[in-house]
Amino acid sequence: MPDNITREVAEAHWSKTKKLMVTTLAIWFFFGFFIHFFVSSLNNIVILGFPLGFYMAAQGSLIVFVVLIFWFASRQNTIDEEFGVAED
């Protein structure tokens, strides 16, 4: 443990980090797997020629993944700063 950080702070930081991990992976699971279980029904909705089920696997989920990682990175930064454990 670095000298200037107490065990309590470190534990609180880690518990928030874990919560963020669970949230992020839940969103990941939803767009990586769950939504594609319903591809056949989603394909009945067609937008601009794209059946929605196909679109989600070809583009929609991918966009979510990219945004999700940047969102996660900024959230984790906020957490690090909140507990004073961010890099200088």
Binding site: M21, I69, A73
Partner: peptide, 11 residues
């Protein structure tokens, strides 16, 4: 081949 990066970033 895209979703795995979420695991890389988080874990």
């Amino acid at each position: 081949w895209t979703g795995g990066y979420v695991l890389v970033a988080v874990l």
